[in-house]
Amino acid sequence: MLRFIANRFLQGIIVLIALYTITFFLIKAMPGDPFTGEKNIAEETKELMREKYGLNDSVFTQYFLYLKNVFTEGSLGISTSKAHSVNEMIGQSFPVSCVLGITALLIAIAVGVPLGVASAVRQNSWIDYSSMAWAMIGICVPAFTVGPILQIFLAMKLPLFNVAGWSSPRDVVLPAITLGLVTTAYIARLTRSGMLEILSQDYIRTAHAKGLPISRVVMKHALRGGLLPAVAYIGPAFAALISGSFIVETIFQVPGMGQHFVNATKARDPFLLQGVVLFFGLLIVIMNLAADILTGLLNPRVRLTQE
């Protein structure tokens, strides 16, 4: 098990370095620098700014300098458009994205797993068909359609929630539902197919033959194996919920990390963009590692074949 974890850890570090290298050169390939668009700043000032941010050094010096700063000081640089430390900006917005992501994930698990289990146990019944149809609709209707519709019906017509903003705990509900919709659908589908596979195994037939009630067969015998595909998906899905929520954050004006990413892309803010991308990458690597370990614990075969 330890070797398995060490292996995965090393792979995670390689992923992060690859991600840094790809995005670094992509950002360098973006035409112009953060100051070319500013017409109100004198040319000499721009030159001073470039000097200050180290944008005049050779590309390779910049590449290694940033890497060195990340490793020695944990510093992700300073945003050229907001003139704040990137660490601080992420520190302020990450908790917001985190709360939103966790709520969305909890909703997705709470709805998706029971739907999937019920569909598998009653395969080809109306429960199966209707919940799988709902799951497919959840995958095919984009957040930017669901979000505004929720705003109209649950915030304007029925004033249950605020239309947008992030001031009271209730404000998390609508964005979390919107964000969690696709994840709910995938979890339901994965749980269903995982459970179907397990329910056709011999040991389940044995459990039935012993006269156990269905609820006990499902809960005690099938669930552990049947949830494996969903568990493997939840780790990456959580990272995706946090890093991929820019649409939902835009619709509901949530001050999370997604807005920094979008703004940084539009403003050509190299350090903010790099910092946010690296942070997303780190999050995904950690979540994948956690999912691998969890899968290894639930299913010893995985860990034996991959060691």
Binding site: Q11, G12, I14, V15, A18, L19, I22, T23, L26, I27, A29, M30, P31, A239, A240, S243, G244, F261, T265, L273, V277, F280, G281, I284, V285, N288
Partner: peptide
């Protein structure tokens, strides 16, 4: 391929898209 798999797809696509868009504009 394994390494590229773990990279946040949408994030890199957005940055790549901005770079290529500038080239095709020129």
């Amino acid at each position: 391929v394994d390494t590229l798999f773990a990279i946040p797809f949408l994030v890199v696509v957005i940055v790549l898209q901005v770079v290529i868009a500038e080239w095709t504009k020129n």
